[in-house]
Computed example of a mutant assay.
Amino acid sequence: MNDKRFPTPVRVILKQSQENIIASAWDAVEFLRRWPGKRGIAYRRALQHCLDALDGIRSPKKAWASFIAAMKEEGLLA
């Protein structure tokens, strides 16, 4: 399993004004495992898609899109 780079890094701002730059599926998995929001469908989809990208089952671009959707749902995009 190697690190799968996202097409564009994602800048995430937490409520405590802490900024995170998520540049790969691995970064996303680490962020999602300490997820500050609700763990709904978009969260679960993003986590699974990022894990799938690391395993080579899904493209990093699709994992990135799922991660973006989860961030938008939670209002965490910068």
Rank of each mutant, 00 (worst) to 15 (best):
L14K: 00
G56Y: 09
K38I: 13
D27G: 10
Q48A: 13
T8G: 00
Q16W: 01
V10N: 04
K62L: 06
A78K: 02
R11Q: 04
W26E: 14
D52F: 05
Q18A: 07
L32T: 07
A23K: 15
G56L: 12
L14W: 03
A78W: 02
A42N: 07
A69C: 07
E19N: 06
E73C: 00
A42V: 10
F67P: 01
D3W: 04
L76S: 00
I13K: 08
R45Y: 08
R5W: 00
F67D: 02
P7Q: 03
Y43I: 11
K61S: 08
I13N: 04
G40D: 15
K15P: 00
A25F: 05
R45N: 15
M71K: 03
I21H: 03
C50L: 03
F6T: 03
A53I: 14
A69W: 01
R34N: 09
A46H: 05
S59F: 02
L32H: 10
A78P: 15
F6R: 01
H49Q: 08
I22L: 13
Q48F: 05
W35A: 06
L76A: 02
L51H: 04
Y43E: 10
P9L: 03
L76P: 11
I57R: 11
M1R: 09
R5N: 06
W64P: 00
K4L: 02
I57H: 06
D55P: 00
A78R: 02
L47G: 11
N2A: 05
K62F: 05
L47F: 08
S17K: 12
I21F: 04
N2K: 08
R5Y: 00
I41K: 14
A69N: 12
W64A: 14
R34I: 01
W64T: 03
K15M: 04
S59Q: 14
R33S: 11
A23V: 07
R58A: 12
A46T: 01
V29D: 05
G40E: 15
G56F: 06
L54P: 05
A53Y: 04
R33M: 07
A46Y: 02
D55Y: 10
A65K: 10
V10S: 06
L54N: 04
R58S: 06
R5G: 01
V12R: 01
M71P: 00
E19Q: 10
L14T: 09
R11A: 00
F6N: 04
L51K: 07
Y43F: 11
R39Q: 13
N2E: 12
A78H: 00
L54M: 15
A70S: 09
R58T: 15
W35V: 05
K72E: 14
R11M: 08
P36R: 07
R11K: 08
N2D: 13
F31H: 12
P7V: 05
F31Q: 14
A42M: 04
N2Y: 07
F31D: 12
G40T: 15
A28D: 02
R45V: 07
L77E: 04
